[in-house]
Design a protein around this nucleic acid. Structure first.
Length: 645
DNA sequence: TCCATCCTAAACATCC
DNA sequence: GGGATGTTTAGGATGG
């Protein structure tokens, strides 16, 4: 909406055609970059760039508007403010604080433009003053400018302007102009105004202007950004009282050696900048020049409103930042396998899926067997890479797999994913977003004995994933290849033949660090960063990264039931841990301590140094990880190796 | 660009 | 001999 408005406004200026073409091409729903005039036809435009572009065009619109305003004001013999041919609402939309920061407005407002705008408002205020203060002398231009700024900082309370409009004195356009200027006025502008005003304005006038700003005259403005109790509606006597304490406080702070109004050898009173050699001189200056009088009171009041305005601006900017972050972290165009209707198990999960952040009706991954796809996890990696390109490299042979390696990269909780999407993966020809190694490991750890024959691994794959019910030669070869290649998979011979087990130590060795930093940092990232849009699985992984530390007996109290629940479904590593806990706690019907120690025979004893580094033997390496106390195991499994050391 | 990781393909060996 | 299993190598792709 704002983009379109910008285009409309900018179209009035041929010099802005560049901005129009590029912006309109982006505002038409992603119709491409065929505009081409901006020279950005080959590169991808990031959302940040788009925002920047929009703001630049907004600035162009604002400049155009101001120029037209100035030209209208400069028309000779014009006593009334002319109605600009520019579409005012459009321009105002462009100049809203959501589009232009005060700094940018300061940059675009050249002195003549600002002067023209002020002159326009001077004319308005002149009539206002004539009406409301008939006894008042004609004010100088700087006084008027000051008064206008006062009014602008109160958002030009509508009641006040409506009164003028009823008198036919003020058209709508200047109202919007002042509002926008007020929104865009930066502290330096105000400082300059202060400087202009402070030297000439009498105390009486300042007081009158301040009185005129009282919100009591604008009480009908329900949308006023200034809380009455917090800013302009503060009774004057209270201000005076507050001011009366200033010298006493100053004398106190003199001993301290610092003063908020004193810095770099000069007075920081708004618009003053008087040079003071030392604090004593400054205090003297403060008491003399900025003593309790009407002018200081008015200035103080204005300063309050400046602060208010900045706070409002900050709130708006923060809101915009939130929106930007939300947008950048959530790409609606991404395939969202976790939003599948088949995601039956997730409904009751404690893990809140990021589907909440999506509007209804977004495309879901196909479930047909004709187009295997690889669901991508929603996580940091997606933001940086997967969202910008398809991430769907497809080989020309065989299964046509799509690369996926995020499970290991970010320690995707397979147990959580499978638990919540098991039906989906069973029925849909969707490649699971896990590596072969992680799938094999999960299959093995999921088995009652934590050991599987190759054929049982095959069966697990085909049973769990529809994707692996075809092209068996390819993925079975890959499974065998992974079993042999990775040292974390240990071939063990038992009475039934060769089985495969998992050496967790080795598995953790080959896993990249999931999250560096202190647990506090991780926890703060989860809780404080506001990444509600992040995939809950990733959040769970993060949480587990910290919980694994927090669960340490020396670190924290036992995890809550919710935490345990999350752990159980949230991470393959941790789920195995929980299983272990359950087995030791006689909650699991599948595992017993005896089963861990059932006789198996190592077929091939390792001989190289690396293998010798394993605990005792291959079997010992397996049993080592399984026999660890749960807390230790948590630490070992969930922490990067460097955190363990 | 380099490197680590992952995936796929393929060759080869061994065992049943 | 054939199939299953296991090992190894090679090459391409991807991402840090």
């Amino acid at each position: 909406m704002m983009v379109e408005s910008a285009s409309e406004t900018i179209r009035t200026t041929p010099s802005n055609q560049n901005g129009v073409s590029s912006l309109s091409s982006q505002s038409d729903g992603g119709g491409g970059r065929e505009g081409g005039s901006n020279g950005d036809t080959n590169g991808e435009i990031s959302p940040v760039d788009l925002l920047h572009l929009q703001q630049q065009q907004a600035l162009q619109a604002a400049r155009q508007f101001l120029l037209q305003q100035a030209s209208g004001l400069n028309s000779p013999g014009s006593n009334e403010v002319k109605q600009s041919p520019v579409q005012v609402p459009v321009s105002m939309a462009m100049m809203s604080p959501q589009m232009i920061t005060p700094q940018q407005m300061q940059q675009i407002l050249s002195p003549p433009q600002l002067q023209a705008l002020l002159q326009q408002q001077q004319a308005l205020m002149l009539q206002q003053v004539k009406h409301t203060h008939s006894h008042t002398r004609q004010l100088g231009s700087k006084q008027l400018a000051f008064q206008q700024q006062l009014i602008q900082m109160q958002q030009l309370q509508q009641q006040h302007i409506l009164n003028l409009q009823r008198q036919g004195l003020v058209p709508m356009q200047p109202t919007a102009t002042m509002q926008s200027l007020q929104q865009a006025m930066c502290p330096s502008d105000l400082q300059q105004l202060w400087k202009e005003v402070s030297g000439i304005q009498s105390s009486e006038e300042a007081l009158k202007q301040a009185e005129g700003l009282d919100l009591s005259t604008n009480s009908s403005n329900s949308t006023s950004a200034f809380p009455k109790a917090a800013s302009a509606h503060i009774p004057l006597h209270s201000l005076i009282n507050g001011q009366s304490h200033t010298p006493k406080r100053d004398s106190h702070e003199e001993h301290v050696g610092s003063h908020p109004l004193y810095g770099h050898g000069e007075c920081k009173w708004p618009g003053c900048e008087a040079l003071c050699e030392d604090m004593g001189q400054f205090i003297k200056h403060l008491n003399n020049e900025h003593a309790l009088d009407d002018r200081s009171t008015a200035q103080c009041r204005v300063q309050m409103q400046v602060v208010q305005q900045l706070e409002i601006q900050l709130a708006k900017e923060s809101e915009r930042l939130q929106a930007m972050m939300a947008h950048l972290h959530m790409r609606p165009s991404e395939p969202k396998p976790f939003n599948q209707p088949l995601n039956l198990a997730s409904s009751g999960s404690l893990l809140k899926r990021d589907s909440d952040a999506y509007p209804e009706g977004l495309p879901h991954p196909p479930t047909s067997a004709t187009a295997p796809i690889t669901p991508l996890r929603q996580g940091p990696s997606v933001i940086s890479s997967s969202s910008l390109h398809t991430h769907s490299h497809s080989h020309t042979h065989g299964v046509g797999p799509i690369r996926r390696r995020n499970s290991d990269k970010y320690c995707t909780p397979i147990a959580s994913e499978l638990a919540q999407n098991c039906e989906f993966y069973k029925n849909a020809d969707v490649r699971p977003p896990f590596t072969y190694a992680s799938l094999i490991r999960h299959a093995i750890l999921e088995s009652p004995d934590r050991q599987l024959t190759l054929n049982e691994i095959y069966n697990w794959f085909t049973r769990k994933f529809a994707y692996f019910r075809r092209n068996t030669a390819t993925w079975k070869n890959a499974v065998r290849h992974n079993l042999s290649l990775h040292k974390c998979f240990v071939r063990v011979e038992n009475v039934k033949g060769a089985v495969w087990t998992v050496d967790e130590v080795e598995y953790q060795k080959r896993r990249p660090p999931k999250m560096t930093g202190s647990p506090t940092l991780v926890k703060n990232m989860i809780s404080g960063l506001g990444f509600g849009s992040l995939n809950a699985s990733y959040q769970a992984a993060l949480a587990e990264s910290s919980l694994s530390l927090l669960n340490s007996p020396s670190m924290l109290s036992p995890p809550s039931a919710a935490s345990l629940n999350m752990l159980h479904v949230g991470h393959d590593d941790v789920s195995s841990t929980v299983e272990q806990v359950n087995s030791n706690g006689s909650c699991s019907p599948t595992l017993s301590p005896q089963q861990y120690s059932h006789p198996v025979h190592v077929k091939e004893e390792p001989t190289d140094l690396e293998e010798d580094s394993r605990p005792v033997s291959l079997l010992a390496g397996v049993t080592h990880s399984m026999a660890l106390p749960s807390d230790e195991r948590d630490l070992e499994e969930d922490l990067p190796t460097e955190e363990l050391e």
